[in-house]
């Protein structure tokens, strides 16, 4: 299963996972921070690869998943590459 982890940096520089977004049956299902989940569904994130910077949403599946690491890259919040392991 493909998935992306979103990390938050704590005051001591350690990172904790705040959200895990998994590709299930062609759509992305996120587990973790409720506000972020709601924001994803309501506002989406830009598709940085598209010329017009269209917004992509969890329902867009892998396209959404692949954009997360370009969106979360500040150091305060970072998203992993798309991983492809089994997770519990």
């Amino acid at each position: 299963m493909k998935f992306v982890e979103i990390y938050e940096t704590k005051n001591n520089g350690d990172q904790s996972i705040v959200l895990v977004c998994k590709l299930e049956n062609g759509v992305v299902v996120c587990e973790g921070d409720e506000l972020m989940k709601r924001n994803f569904d309501a506002k989406g994130i830009p598709d940085y690869g598209s010329e017009k910077r269209e917004m992509v949403f969890p329902k867009d599946g892998i396209r959404f998943l692949e954009q997360l690491k370009f969106h979360f890259k500040s150091g305060y919040m970072n998203a992993s590459d798309v991983k492809d392991d089994k997770i519990n």
Partner: peptide
């Protein structure tokens, strides 16, 4: 005093601790 390479993100980011004076994000 220390550096921690942060995981994730398209760009490399590093958490840096400064002696007696807080911390910073290095890019």
């Amino acid at each position: 005093t220390s550096t921690k390479k942060l995981g994730g993100g398209a760009n490399e980011t590093v958490f840096v601790e400064l002696k007696d004076d807080g911390s910073a994000i290095f890019k």
